[in-house]
Design a protein around this nucleic acid. Sequence first.
DNA 1: TTTATATTGACATATATTAGACAATAATTT
DNA 2: AAATTATTGTCTAATATATGTCAATATAAA
Lengths: 314, 314
Amino acid sequence: MLAKHPIRVVARQTGLSPHLIRAWERRYKAVVPQRTESGQRLYSDADIERLKLLKTACRNGESISQVSGLAEKELREIVGSEVRLEADGGLAYSEPASSGLKSPDDFLAAGLEAVVAMDSERLEQTLSRAAIDLSRPVLLDEVYEPLLYKMGESWKNGTLSVANEHMASAVARTLLGNLARYYKPADEAPVIIVATPEGFLHEFGALMVAVTASADGWNVIYLGPNSPLKEIALAARQKKARAVALSLVYPAYDKRMEAELRQLKENLGQNIEVVIGGQAAESYRDINKEIGATRLNSLAEFRGFLKGFRNGRS
Amino acid sequence: MLAKHPIRVVARQTGLSPHLIRAWERRYKAVVPQRTESGQRLYSDADIERLKLLKTACRNGESISQVSGLAEKELREIVGSEVRLEADGGLAYSEPASSGLKSPDDFLAAGLEAVVAMDSERLEQTLSRAAIDLSRPVLLDEVYEPLLYKMGESWKNGTLSVANEHMASAVARTLLGNLARYYKPADEAPVIIVATPEGFLHEFGALMVAVTASADGWNVIYLGPNSPLKEIALAARQKKARAVALSLVYPAYDKRMEAELRQLKENLGQNIEVVIGGQAAESYRDINKEIGATRLNSLAEFRGFLKGFRNGRS
DNA sequence: TTTATATTGACATATATTAGACAATAATTT
DNA sequence: AAATTATTGTCTAATATATGTCAATATAAA
């Protein structure tokens, strides 16, 4: 990809503030991007990759003044050798460049292999590596989503045992949790509550929504699965949320939900947007319309919603 | 590798405190690193390796004043091939933060505050910092365990809303997941399966067990909550596990469990140890005894079990 | 106009530095 | 045994450095 990116995009993709990116350049020549004629910075994908590596190295305790001088290869080496020492679960980096995986499909295939072999070690490495190499949307849409979907399928038709699925779910849960807290929200970042309502136990959809919103700069309050709608409303008011996102996967329909959703909307008032997604969301079409909730069928649509929200309100 | 590391990285990788590393240098010239222009220490990978050797030698009873003068080769002879870091004790050392929290109680209090304020950001920071400053046993026994317990209590008596508890659980789930993958297991590390049986949905006990075993050098296969015992047995056989740990919290008693546990033991055979813990474990005393499972009442007891296991079988 | 970016200088805080002190053991001498 | 000394891990205090953040100002872009 030859595209060049302005600093804002780089900041979003790396989770570093524009200030910090410039400071690193000024002080340590960490990454020196091209410039436009007028002097604005233009970063290549390689530049972004390098910044991600530098960030990870620093999270591992290295000092920026030291690592900023290193070549790509050396960076990958130290970052790769230190993953295990990362106590606070920053984006773990896995294998040094040798893994050979490139496309989302590669990662997906490697991940599935690890699941079948019940090798949580390898699954972790694969997914961590994917998180470094791929952009957030691609990672979620083309690795996590299909991986979790295929696991569900294989479980239904007996290809995969429950044990494999559980092992993989546990790993994916941890890594998605990390992704959701990878970006430090700005102080004035709008707040979004993410959860699944009471009775809905599948949390992966909600987690991916949380990651997406977090990557978009939101301050995400993740309440997890099985959260009573009353409590969600409470949290939304307490944290002055701008939006509430609900993921409904299973069961397909529960009559009580209608009344509860109505109640939720009442509790929230007009200024808090409600977004509903997930396989089971379709069943609640009517009530959704009634309460003015936005129905979204994919993470891509959710991204569109977030974008529109920003443009519309800020 | 060209990279040079600051003392904090060395401290983490060796498990020695920065104070001690400097003291060894000052008194015995144990390892004399490069310096930056401004005088900060810069350690090479070889330096780190040497410090690990020295630490191991000292643990084996040598005195630092004696071994600090030895060359690499002689050191290796003394410590044998075993350079493996002690997994249990005060690993992952980091200099305590100069400002703010120090004791486990401080972290606990700060964590609870964050929970009440529903500030997931702050809760994360607090728990992450605790993970760096405290040893695993202290972290689990004196921060996570009481935090989760108090949250449960507060929820029961209405002090805390479900929303707060869910938010905190989600954060704790992610961070515990990270801790469980903190140590890379050796290739020959014994395998332990950790899970809660079908019907038991509380996974925090199991997670803490997973962290503890991982810190002790085990290769942990974490299957998470609600795992059918059949599947657990399947996983144990497939991964040639040496032990299976089950956490039973709620419900207190389920009759079907008896038959299932019996079945589990049959499937596992005599060579795979079964360990059972958790609040509800007491209810299954008889069947535990019957199948020869070890009943453990605390993480401390579990640590003892792991220790005994090492001594007894290796 | 309004917003985003660039540059410079400054600031605050976490962390590192040195020197020295202290307490608990271990080793030695009395 | 008791007293003395040496060893060694830990801690404090004062100082210095490293590094993330910000404010002020200017320019460019939308």
